[in-house]
Design a protein around this nucleic acid. Structure first.
Length: 489
RNA sequence: CGGGGCGUAGCGUAGCCUGGUAUCGCGCCUGCUUUGGGAGCAGGAGGUCACCGGUUCAAAUCCGGUCGCCCCGACCA
């Protein structure tokens, strides 16, 4: 068992490490159904914090929540040609209900564009009804062949924003705005830096005019598509007759956007921040930010230490920080485990700050604060522990983003590069490679075929190289754009 | 769907070749002693050996079939 206590190191087998962390940190467990997962309280707690933060951001940008049904008439999916082509192979279909065959099979939503724009068509008559800005929190089902906890399961939780606008430019602005919201969330809350940009034709959403994406680098140097935002143009409006009267009395199709992030983000969080001791959760998303571990020898000491620990837990729990919410504190009073065993457990679970409190500390009116990200210890006076913990949490949140960004930059490659060198990189450690592309889908496909790497995005300006690449990585023809290449999840 | 692995207590496993009393560790329960980096001792509970069929006096073990899960490759948030 001694060996079982340690995780498989990331360097030895990243995939095994990931599975072990998710299971042992009790974020999730396998379900009896292949490809499905149970999200356990510690995993769901992270999701709840993500939801709250994102939901506030959606509301702040004018969106309202609604809920659309799980079942979609199969015919709806067929109304948009690209869309059905993209999703039909991976839908689950209900053919029977109440013991009888249904007249029309029902698709379990793989995404809700069809049902939502069908409803929008009923609700929108005039330009005065626009823009219509809706979000829904829901589960969706996609019948994937190969699944992985959080990263790809048959059923997953997500949010999908759906909007309708009077003009192309407004829709474009909306799609870009929500991509920005995602980026702010991923960097500000998840401490996960992303590269934003536009997807190529071959990688865009089925039915979209344009797809934008946030791409994050995992610790195995592979890219994770963490969130996407689509300008759907008028494709769905045409398919579902979503029209409105213009100011001048004409009739036009509305312009739509959709955008989503899912519980996949939790997988991204694990693979961005986890280490060989387990999970590391950025404080803002941690269901428990602080765990207090009391230390004692005699019964007399236990009584004293417990009393003090409870007092500190209360005062920390009541500590009002600048943002008006309280510290999320947990007090570990279990008497069957030694302190060391508790340390290992809370490290596995990723709690950002541990407070150690023993008799020697009490004599000095202090406690020891230990940060999960670096393992560094520091004493804190019991008189100022609230401020100290708050400051430490803020420092951890910042440090985690800085560290993740530095790691990404250390594994990014820019500047002139030969195709041979590129192949070498993709065969080896992997990287984010910024290189020229001629714009030809054939080159994109050939590279994917030969190296498994794909164009993650055509990066937004701030991510592009100071010296734009001049030639296509593959065919050496003049480049029409700079592309970010990587292997992806 | 192709390749690989696995199904024995909550978890991890031994036993299978060569059929005969279900193995060990962790965890769990009780008690005592412990507790500043994964505690010790003693006692205890816990099993349709994935499922179905066959061979046999007797099957976890041999034979036939079925199902499921995990990992690696072709699709994808």
């Amino acid at each position: 068992m001694a060996d079982d206590k340690k995780l498989t190191p990331r360097a030895e087998d990243f995939s095994a490490w990931y599975n072990e962390v998710v299971l042992r940190a009790e974020l999730a467990d396998y379900s009896p159904v292949r490809g499905c997962m149970v999200i356990r309280p510690d995993g769901y707690g992270i999701w709840e914090r993500m939801q709250r933060a994102l939901d506030d951001m959606f509301k702040a940008t004018g969106h309202r929540n609604a809920y659309f049904p799980l079942f979609i008439p199969e015919s709806f999916l067929h109304k948009e040609a690209q869309h059905v082509e993209g999703f039909a192979p991976e839908t689950a279909v209900v053919t029977h209900g109440g013991g009888k065959a249904l007249e029309e099979p029902l698709v379990v939503r793989p995404t809700s564009e069809t049902i939502i724009y069908a409803m929008f068509a009923k609700w929108v008559q005039s330009y005065r009804d626009l823009p219509l800005l809706i979000n829904q929190w829901a589960n969706v089902v996609r019948w994937e062949m190969r699944t992985r906890l959080f990263l790809r399961t048959l059923e997953f939780l997500w949010q999908e924003g759906h909007t309708a606008h009077a003009t192309h430019d407004e829709a474009e602005e909306e799609a870009r705005r929500m991509l920005g919201v995602y980026r702010d969330f991923m960097e500000g809350w998840m401490a996960m830096p992303v590269v934003t940009g536009r997807k190529t034709e071959s990688e865009k959403f089925a039915g979209a005019l344009r797809t934008y994406s946030c791409e994050a680098m995992m610790q195995d140097n592979k890219a994770l598509q963490a969130g996407t935002s689509h300008n759907l143009g008028q494709n769905f409006a045409r398919a579902f007759d979503l029209t409105f009267q213009t100011e001048s009395g004409g009739t036009e199709y509305a312009w739509n956007t959709s955008w989503g992030v899912s519980t996949r983000l939790i997988g991204g969080l694990v693979m961005t921040h986890g280490d060989d001791k387990g999970l590391r959760i950025p404080p803002l998303l941690a269901p428990t930010e602080v765990v207090i571990v009391p230390i004692w020898r005699s019964d007399e000491e236990r009584a004293r230490v417990f009393e003090a620990a409870e007092r500190i837990a209360r005062s920390l729990g009541d500590w009002e920080r600048r943002e008006p919410n309280r510290l999320r504190v947990r007090l570990d009073l279990r008497e069957t485990l030694k302190p060391g065993a508790k340390y290992y457990e809370w490290e596995m679970r990723g709690v950002p700050v541990r407070v150690e409190l023993g008799p020697r500390d009490l004599e000095k009116n202090q406690a020891v604060l230990v940060r999960r990200d670096t393992g560094a210890k520091q004493p804190a006076s019991l008189d100022t522990i609230g401020e100290d913990v708050e400051a430490l949490l803020e420092s951890i949140q910042d440090a985690m983003l800085t560290e993740a960004r530095a790691r990404r930059e250390a594994h990014s490659v820019r500047g002139a590069i030969t195709y041979d060198r590129f192949r070498e990189i993709m065969d080896g450690e992997g990287a984010f490679v910024y290189a020229g592309w001629c714009g030809n889908a054939a080159c994109e496909a050939a590279i994917k075929e030969e190296t498994k790497a794909t164009i993650r995005v055509l990066p937004d300006e701030e991510f592009r190289s100071a010296e734009p690449p001049t030639h296509c990585l593959k065919c050496n023809q003049p480049a029409t754009s700079e592309a970010l290449w990587a292997k992806a999840y």
